[in-house]
Simulated scan of single mutants.
Amino acid sequence: MNRKLKVLVSGTGFAGQGHTDAFRAVGAEVVGIVGRTPHVVAEVAQKMDIPFSGTNWQEALEACQPDIVSIGTPGGAHYETIKQSIEFGCHVYSDKPLTVDGDSAIKLYELAKTKNVKTAFASSFRYMPHVLHAKRLVANGAIGEPVEAEFMSHFHLERDIPFGWSHRKEDGGGRLNNNFTHMMSIATSVIGEKILSIIGEVRDDLGKAPIVKGVHNFKTRRDYIPKDLNDPNLEWGESNVEWSYTVMAKLESEFAAKPVSVLFKHGGLNPRFNEDHIVFYGTKGAVYIKGHYGMGPLYIWDESKTWQELPLPQDIVDDQPKVDGDTERNWQYLAREFVKDIEGQAFAPYQTFKEGSQYQQLIDIIRKNDNWTDVIHLQ
């Protein structure tokens, strides 16, 4: 392509601004940004030197004529925006979750196939350098045949974070949408992309949260926690999503004769005692990564019968975008491969709306919470 690809961004918060930086870094031109609140979107556009800003998505599509749209809003605002974009002929880069349920996600996936547009699904922590290292080690037989994996995380989120989209199922909230999507993406990237079966349980440990005006950026919401939570004039919103989950899955792997068992355990509100971690176990060893999203360092257990820390291979280090922040770096990694694909260059495979729609169907299944067997009658 002789010209820069034009990008229109939906969302003015952390994700929208992060997507803007990511696409600019990989050579695309961000021509417009759309948000809900007129003065906020105008301020962000001015701050980031984006030529067009507005609050009407269809008008923005007409005015900007983008090649790509980038969706950086909460999941509840995705469906109509993405649908209009696909019908307009745009390629779509969407943050997770794709939508609020499996049925609507499938419709977007099918529409994208019909309109022959490319899609990218940003459950993008699979691009963490230590995860890429683990993928290489497993593929090279360093642990023998993979047999099981575990993903353990405890976030200890503040219970009094202001009520917002993260508390509401209809807005794309919940820990499955915003944590499990990344965890499953990491698991499939290392073990294999084919998910065979799943079972799970969810729990709302929160109940309610204070209603506070003025929160526009997800990253700064903690700054708005009320100082007096006993104020009788304070309003409260009711949570209707999970803040903890336990999920088990079986994945097919080309490196193993039998399905690989995977445990995902997440407590959004629970404090951690030992570090969060990811482990891949095999018939001859194991790979352990510190951190809930594979931040590192990485350790291997092999024939030495002890855990040894392994440095990152230099080629993996060199291939990482040079930007601070894990989330921001992963967004840029995916944007780079997406742009390469659109421009007809060689690219690394990435997740699309196929995986995005599949993940929403999995979340629907898990949220049913109907996997228990009543044993109270047993003697």
Rank of each mutant, 00 (worst) to 15 (best):
K83P: 10
H156T: 06
F155T: 09
D21V: 05
V260P: 13
H91Y: 07
P129S: 12
I186F: 03
A286M: 10
D103N: 04
R367A: 08
F52V: 13
I186M: 07
E59N: 02
N140L: 11
S124Q: 11
P321D: 11
A105C: 05
A22D: 10
K208G: 15
S357A: 15
N179D: 08
E145Y: 11
A60C: 09
C64F: 07
I50Y: 01
N178E: 03
K213V: 15
F121Q: 01
K250R: 11
E303A: 12
K265Y: 12
V247D: 02
N230M: 07
Q308K: 15
G200Y: 04
A120M: 04
K305D: 07
G237Q: 01
V69W: 02
Q46Y: 13
A256F: 00
Q358R: 14
A346Q: 08
H154I: 03
M48P: 12
F255P: 00
A335N: 04
G214K: 03
F273K: 14
R3K: 15
Y224D: 05
G141H: 09
D103Q: 04
V317G: 12
G294S: 13
R3G: 01
G207F: 08
K322D: 14
T352H: 01
Y109W: 13
F347C: 09
L8T: 14
Y79S: 03
L234T: 12
F155L: 15
K284E: 13
N140W: 04
V34R: 02
E158A: 02
E343N: 12
T220S: 15
E343G: 02
G164W: 09
D319N: 14
F14V: 12
A122L: 11
I50T: 08
H78C: 08
E43Y: 05
T73K: 05
T188S: 07
K107S: 12
G11M: 03
S239L: 03
H216A: 06
W331I: 12
E328S: 15
L229W: 00
G172F: 14
E193M: 08
F280V: 02
T306P: 05
N330R: 05
D341N: 05
N270Y: 09
V41H: 09
G356V: 15
I300Q: 05
Y288T: 11
A28V: 02
Y288C: 09
F180S: 04
K135I: 06
H167T: 14
G282P: 13
Q361L: 10
N179H: 13
Y109L: 08
K6C: 00
G11Y: 01
M48I: 11
G18Y: 05
E343V: 01
S304N: 13
P51N: 10
F338P: 00
L137H: 10
H167G: 12
N233S: 15
D319Y: 08
H91L: 11
K290M: 00
I211E: 07
E150S: 14
T55K: 03
L310P: 01
K265V: 13
N178Y: 10
